[in-house]
Design a protein around this nucleic acid. Structure first.
Lengths: 211, 211
DNA sequence: TAAATTAGCGAACACTTGTAAGCTGAAATT
DNA sequence: AATTTCAGCTTACAAGTGTTCGCTAATTTA
């Protein structure tokens, strides 16, 4: 029989602690810590539990790591939804997307840093997990590109991939810069995205003529 | 008085040990180790010296790290020289550059991995050092672009930056792929570089007409 | 030849780390 | 009401860390 209501629900409390662990880990991932460099004991300390209690929630610290990557990926997809809503309200897709992205990574720098760092990190599993999230991003942008520009799938995909990589690269640089440098980076990457958009269109047309 | 010839020159021997330390560190930087995760004792063990002897050559492990980044950057610039020589012998600049780059990073994966990893790593000093090396790369490519395409400096620089970022990004992905995936990545990035080249040309022309 | 320098070593220090074992008390089940 | 479950704790241990100290032996200098 399931006890629906009690003074303190056990499952609920466990979820709370789990959340505390995850939040503690994110808070530790500042500009000088990576997943591989934070220790179980440190996370436990920050979460306010005994080191050994950690094991009641995760098999090891790698399992926590994958959870963090998943959460970060989720945040990324929400970001994309937000960008699309803004684009629908009018304005350039490129300008709106870049501005939305930049706002996000500066407001959630630890989340973005996690993805960035583990993308080139020491764990193959983490690298693969981040790569998957980026691929989601690229696929969504590919679909959007096909819908709005009628570019053939192959070109739309190449364009989307190039754009995502450029934006991520600019984002990485922005994390270490001051506000002025960040603004400049945003403007530069917008122009570079136009290069790519124009170039893809031009190349696709030329290929179309050849047939 | 300087003793020019002796059975074993002391300075020479010291340089040899220093080299052994550097080589040991590079050999430890495989796909699952980063600068921040290799320990002084580990490097010493690999180099065949006592942990405490390390201090006779470097103040701390960070100083070793910066030396490694410098060496890696040097290798990168030599790579670029090699690419230019090949381009001069004929063939597309994009195709030749990408092929040369891909050959290099697969043959010297630990060197490239170091740059890649520390570019987004936990040490601000390392990140800055890598960023400087990449900037060198971009500046050289900008100059080359101006010389060969007569693009205005601003556009040439934006184009060069975009290209370098794309190639580095593809290189990072290549490190985790098999031979077939690496070939595919190379082909894709070549097309994407054409997007950028064509797009920059188109955008620059349009801006020129507007004036 | 005598003195000074120094690359390298071993021992020892005060940490931090992951994780195993076993206990406790409260919630959930019967 | 009696029993089971289990989140969280304390204690403990072996292994690894960076770094200090003082020594040795050989090269370099005077």
């Amino acid at each position: 029989m399931i006890q629906v209501c009690s003074v303190v629900n056990r499952q609920e409390q466990k979820q709370k602690t789990r959340r505390a662990i995850i939040d503690a880990a994110f808070s530790l991932l500042d500009e000088q810590r990576s997943l591989s460099s934070i220790s179980l004991r440190e996370v436990a300390r920050e979460a306010g539990i005994a080191p050994t209690s950690f094991y009641r929630h995760f098999a090891d610290i790698d399992e926590l790591g994958l959870t963090l990557v998943d959460e970060a990926g989720l945040a990324l997809r929400q970001l994309m939804r937000q960008a699309r809503q803004r684009i629908a309200k009018g304005g350039s897709a490129i300008v709106t997307s870049v501005d939305t992205f930049m706002e996000f990574i500066l407001a959630n720098s630890n989340v973005f840093r996690l993805l960035l760092r583990e993308h080139t990190g020491t764990s193959l599993a983490f690298r693969a997990a981040v790569q998957r999230e980026i691929q989601h991003f690229i696929i969504e942008l590919t679909d959007y590109t096909i819908a709005t520009t009628k570019l053939p799938h192959e070109y739309a995909n190449l364009q989307a991939e190039a754009m995502v990589k450029m934006v991520f690269s600019a984002g990485a640089e922005a994390l270490d810069g001051n506000v002025q440098q960040q603004r400049q980076l945003a403007e530069r990457v917008k122009i570079q995205l136009r290069f790519i958009a124009n170039g893809a269109l031009f190349t696709a047309r030329k290929a179309g003529q050849a047939n």
